[in-house]
Amino acid sequence: MIAVKNLTKIYGKDDAAVHALSECSITFDQGKFTAIIGTSGSGKSTLLHLAAGLDTADTGEIFYDSTNILSLGDVELSRFRLKNIGVVFQFFNLIPELTARENILLPLMLDKTPVDTSYFEMLTDKLEISNRLSHYPSQLSGGQQQRTAIARALIHKPSILLCDEPTGNLDSKSGAEVLKLLSSLQKSLGLTIVMVTHDEKIAAQADKIVRIEDGKICG
């Protein structure tokens, strides 16, 4: 379970200050697929980045079970992320200099964990990128890139997958495929998925929908 308590994030100072999140509190249930929906600039991506430990909040707490990740130091936080969290970005964020296989295996390499070959094959088969593993990101389609990014986010078997508009940069067909995959993975792996989107239709496929407006949770 992820519990966000009184989270506030302000960008800029004085007159230029923007309240991305104001006293935001929410709970994401374990094993559920939660969609965060909101308009552009509403603070949904900020919430996700904070939840992933990619950014620091001004005030508040984020509990993963009993661990407040905002109280962790950089090394502990990195270690925690590496073990427990997978992140999928809108723009894939694959490393262009590495092949798809290398991109997927990168978290394991960073963690110095041996590769679970059967899991790797299962994952890449399920994501339908087995025949694209030797390709560089520039040689993959958008959908293939995002599937590679999902494989990378899951290769270290995290319990939580945070997705920042994973279909935002894909055509509708690819987007639908990715969603279907995420849903399927959530069920088969028992994942907790938190997904940010601005699309009502996509959000509708989630177990729970959270709305956010002007940095505040609306429902």
């Binding site: 936080l77 990195s78 590496l82 992140v87 964020n93 490393i95 990168l106 960073l110």
Partner: peptide, 16 residues
């Protein structure tokens, strides 16, 4: 920069 940011998101510490 972007590569490093990705690595950080994947769990690389600032020190590393």
């Amino acid at each position: 920069g972007k590569n490093f940011a990705t690595l950080r998101a994947l769990g690389m510490s600032r020190k590393a």
